[in-house]
């Protein structure tokens, strides 16, 4: 893979990665959010594949396939399952499947994402300067997705959106790790992935329990939990 091909493919993967992250803020339909997250998983996998091909490392490509399978396959599947579980009694399924009233509305959220992207670019300049190259120049993208993920956590009400926000942060951390180093050891990546999987399973259980207790998954209902 020559230099320009490498740069273009990497830019494409990173672009898809960023776009999927920002679009999560735009869509209200939870099923669409999960699809966007799966798309981002594919983009992340592609990014790592490109890096692996560039370094000629079969090992890294194998890791990429694993990362992709987890983030584009298993995790979205688990979230779909939580989403498709019918609410007990005659719950309002239509209400439940949508992010109806985010704390910050969609237009403002997109503007905020733009501001966060600016911050991310400004902050990661020292990292880019360390060793300029296509991979390090993509670090701001990963940082933007991290901030967007955090923003989703802060402003979205549904438990599933929270899970997605959390996973966006994790995707961004993984992307940063692969972009700034020449491949993460397999053990570390396995550990992180297992951690994420466990967190999602726990959050899935939480979602189910919340539905059983309150009939909805609005985290605003959890206000009573303070001393």
């Amino acid at each position: 893979m020559n230099d320009s091909m490498y740069a273009q493919w990497l830019a494409l993967a990173c672009g898809a990665f960023l776009l999927a992250g920002v679009l999560v803020l735009w869509r209200r339909d939870l099923a669409a959010i999960v699809r966007l997250f799966a798309l981002q998983g594919v983009a992340l996998g592609a990014m790592v594949v490109v890096l692996g091909l560039r370094q000629g490392s079969v090992h890294l490509v194998a890791v990429a396939v694993g990362v992709g399978a987890l983030r584009a396959g298993l995790l979205p599947y688990l979230m779909r399952r939580a989403l498709d579980t019918p609410p007990p009694g005659n719950g309002t399924a239509g209400e439940e499947a949508r992010e109806t009233r985010p704390l910050v509305n969609v237009a403002t959220s997109l503007l905020a994402a733009a501001v966060l992207a600016l911050v991310a670019y400004a902050v990661s300049q020292p990292i880019v300067r360390l060793s300029p190259g296509p991979a390090t120049q993509a670090v701001p993208v990963a940082l933007t997705v991290l901030l967007v993920g955090f923003f989703v956590l802060v402003t979205r009400r549904r438990a599933l959106s929270q899970v997605v926000g959390f996973l966006l942060i994790d995707n961004a951390i993984t992307a940063t790790a692969f972009l700034t180093t020449s491949g993460v050891p397999l053990v570390v990546e396995l550990g992180v992935s297992l951690d994420v999987l466990l967190a999602v399973l726990v959050l899935q259980v939480l979602t189910t329990r919340m539905r059983a207790a309150f009939g909805g998954t609005d985290l605003g209902e959890l206000r009573e939990l303070h001393d």
């Binding site: 966060l116 911050v119 902050v123 901030l147 955090f150 956590l153 959890l222």
Partner: peptide, 21 residues
């Protein structure tokens, strides 16, 4: 600490972005 999860998360978010800025 008024019990709102979003508020707690927002503390973290603002601290992080504030620090980054």
């Amino acid at each position: 600490a008024n019990g709102s999860v979003h508020r707690y998360l927002a503390y973290g978010f603002w601290t992080l972005t504030g620090l980054l800025i």
